[in-house]
Amino acid sequence: MALDCSLAEINPLVVTKSGNLLALDAKLNFDDNAMFRHHDLAGLEDPTEMDPLEHEARKHHLNYIRLSGNVGAMVNGAGLAMATMDLIKAAGAEPANFLDVGGGASAEMVTNGFRIILGDPNVKGVLINIFGGILRCDVLANGVVEAVKTVQVKVPIIVRLEGTNVEQGREILANSGLKFTVATDMRDAAQKVAALVG
């Protein structure tokens, strides 16, 4: 409890001949959210035990989980990111990752997100699904255009934008001179993903 453990498993626990209790092995899981008050524990983390792309994402405060498919996804919000993975699968493809760029994603975070998604050589296409609430679509569109220019993206990109300032966002993408496929809604995005991998 004092160390904010979410799991503490002691096995085997033995009683020695002198009557003392001795834990021979143990597994402890810690609450990531509580690491701010356990710097000693946070320092024990071994990055070589993590997927290198996941470790890179963590450095940039991006929530990224590597999966085995070939369609990369960049989404704002954990629930929408999961639903987008499901959509890719339903379209007959396999998601290459889970990536939640968060509600307040900046152009820089979008660029880093792109770099990490494309760091996975399996990725054959990227679906960007953003519901702009707090994050305005025009800001995001500028970030995507900037990212595609700096990261030198060679795979097709499908963008689905909705929400605040969506018209300006779509216009920025259309006028960028870059090749984006713009999807109008979630169903349309799914069909375009299917066409991409089919």
């Binding site: 704002n76 919000g77 629930g79 929408l80 639903a83 509600g103 519901f131 609430g133 707090i134």
Partner: peptide
């Protein structure tokens, strides 16, 4: 809360969700 107000409209459906942007969707 922090949801974009303009996507909503008055009406008869209640909505409960564990997610944020998925709710907006």
């Amino acid at each position: 809360g922090i949801m974009p107000g303009h996507i909503h409209r008055e009406g008869p459906m209640g909505l409960v969700s564990r997610s944020g942007t998925l709710t907006y969707e």
